[in-house]
Simulated scan of single mutants.
Amino acid sequence: MEERKFVALKKEEFNIKEFVKKYLGKGKVSKVTIEYTPVGEKVVMRTNKPGLVIGRGGEKINSLTTILKKRFKLENPQIEIQEITNRFLDAQSVADEIAVSVENLGSLRFKTIAYRLLQQIVDAGAQGVELKLSGKLPSARARTWRFKKGYLKKVGDSSKVVDRAKAVSQTKSGTVGVDVSILHPDVKIHDHIDLTENKLPVEEKEDGKV
């Protein structure tokens, strides 16, 4: 019985998180967490656009609070906003930005979008970054393109500290999947690489049909 309650709780939390992101709009919120306190439920939202999330005079937050009470039966939801200081070091923010940019500018501009974000992430101090876009880019055949720079651990304990995120872009030619991996500047690794010297070339790779 306890296991069923736990599964039901996690399912409800997932539904709440997905609803909040959809309600506020793609790219507005990076992460949503729910904490349970003696006075109610605390819904924490990480965002690099706090003004757009809060709304004029707290309008959006007040509206969202009311919806969470009625739709999800939360007794006393308290919404907390955590501002992301540098969106280029937050994998979900980057993934959402790529997805939105591909939708707005078109899939033919995907390389320009990827290179721009890649450089901005490196300039923000990341030790390593990989951007992966999968879909009909730009041909009728589905392919996967990877854009990499710096050091990025793929396996072992060090790989657990890599910030990873996914997003989906809906274009005229079809769905494009976006995967982002970032190794933050404050992560301690044995073989450190300094990207600020700009000695490392950007690696672009087409994996072929997926």
Rank of each mutant, 00 (worst) to 15 (best):
K5P: 13
V7F: 08
A8L: 15
K11G: 15
K11Q: 15
K11H: 15
E18R: 14
V20H: 05
G25W: 04
K26Y: 11
V29K: 00
I34T: 04
T37N: 12
P38K: 11
K42I: 06
V44L: 00
V53S: 04
K69Y: 12
K70M: 14
N76K: 12
I81F: 00
Q82E: 14
T85R: 14
T85Q: 07
D90K: 07
Q92W: 04
I98L: 07
S107P: 10
A114S: 10
L117G: 03
Q119L: 05
V122E: 03
V129K: 01
V129F: 02
L131E: 04
L133M: 11
K136N: 15
P138E: 08
T144A: 15
R146S: 12
K148V: 06
K148I: 07
K153M: 04
K153F: 13
K153D: 11
K154G: 04
K154S: 14
S158L: 02
S159V: 08
V161P: 04
V162M: 06
D163Y: 07
R164K: 10
A165D: 06
K166H: 13
A167W: 02
Q170M: 13
T175V: 14
D179Q: 06
I182D: 01
H184W: 03
V187H: 02
D194A: 09
K199H: 10
L200R: 04
V202K: 12
D207H: 05
V210Y: 09
